[in-house]
């Protein structure tokens, strides 16, 4: 197990470095260059001065040399300055990360129980009425454009009915917990709607499989009630591999969070990355993307390890 962990961990680290280089290159291909953006509109800048500055910042070097410099600085803790917020990148990203964790965490609290409920209901009678309805629902979930649903919910609940705020972030300086929650309702609803579809299909398939397994039939023969069979045997068995499914959905959940944060104006990681790229904030975009990548890789690594631990069929 230790060997497996170390080997997977070293692979993840290698991938992180490769990704950091690729992202560094891609970010460098965004329009403009860091210096121009930083000093935009400064009339005292002569071309000669610009050239000097370029040399000073190492911008005249090859992409490899620049990457190396950036990497060395990054590894020593200097992730650069955000040109959009005039603050160190870390200061900007840390609160944003908390915001995104909150959004994604709340989403999981909604989508996972909902998926288990709907999936189990559908699995009880495959091809029955409930199953068909749940099937169409999960198809809708993977087919709905989440930005459109966000707009519709805002139009309905904020503009027409006026029940819920259209923005995900409270305006007051020290909002109460209830106030914060009210602002989270719509974003979480959209994200959960979009996250739940594939999960439902997974739970349904795995429940149907376990419900036809021998041990479940034994449990039924023992005279256990249907509810007890569902919860104690079938559901519990479906839960273990669900860890992997959840981890694999992490990337798409983050993608969804980016869209939702952007529409609801929540200062999370997704919106940070979006704004950074839109406003050519090289440092913020690079670190934000890299952070998102690392967290996703980490989630997958943990899922792999959890799966290996839980499933005796994988020999380590």
């Amino acid at each position: 197990m230790l060997r497996y962990t170390l080997s997977r961990l070293s692979q993840a680290i290698l991938v992180t470095f490769v990704m950091s280089f690729l992202l560094f290159m891609l970010i460098g291909l965004m329009p403009g260059d860091p210096l121009e953006n930083m000093l935009e509109g400064n009339p005292s800048l002569t071309p000669e001065l610009m050239a000097q500055m370029r040399e000073l910042y190492g911008l005249d070097q090859s992409v490899f040399a620049r990457y190396w410099n950036w990497l060395m600085a990054a590894l020593s803790g200097d992730l650069g300055y955000s040109s959009l917020y005039f603050r160190p990148v870390t200061d900007v990203l840390f609160p944003a990360m908390l915001q995104t964790v909150k959004l994604m965490g709340l989403t999981l609290l909604v989508s996972v129980p909902l998926a288990l409920l709907l999936g189990s209901l559908a699995a009880r009678k495959p091809n029955g009425l409930i199953d068909s309805v749940v099937g169409v629902f999960s198809f809708a979930s993977i087919s709905l454009p989440n930005f459109w649903v966000s707009l519709l919910l805002i139009i309905l609940f904020s503009v027409k009915l006026g029940w819920l705020p259209a923005s995900g972030t409270p305006l007051s300086a020290a909002p109460s917990a209830l106030e914060q929650m009210r602002h989270m309702v719509l974003p979480v609803a959209v994200l959960a709607m979009f996250h739940v579809g594939p999960l439902v299909r997974y739970v349904r398939a795995s429940m149907i499989e376990t419900l036809s397994a021998d041990f479940v039939r034994t449990a039924r023969a023992k005279g256990l009630g249907e509810g007890s069979v569902m919860v104690r045997h079938a559901l519990r068995n479906a839960l273990i591999p669900m860890v992997t499914v959840l981890a694999l959905s992490f990337g798409s959940l983050f993608s969804g969070a980016l869209v939702v944060e952007t529409i609801f104006g929540m200062l999370g990681m997704g919106k940070m990355i979006y704004d950074a790229i839109g406003n050519i904030d090289f440092n913020l975009a690079l670190v934000g993307l890299l952070l998102a990548t690392i967290v996703t890789l980490l989630a997958n690594l943990l899922a792999d390890l959890a799966y290996a631990l839980l499933d005796p069929r994988i020999t380590l």
Binding site: V15, M19, L23, L26, I27, L29, M30, P31, G32, L248, F250, G251, S252, F254, S255, G256, L258, V259, G270, I273, Y274, I277, G278, A285, G288, L289, A292, T293, T296, L297, A299, N300
Partner: peptide, 19 residues
């Protein structure tokens, strides 16, 4: 494996922003 795990939308935005 790595590509599958990555968040697509942020990646697409960067690629879409490439000059």
């Amino acid at each position: 494996d790595c590509m599958i795990a990555l968040p697509l939308i942020p990646l697409l935005i960067v690629l879409g922003a490439v000059d």
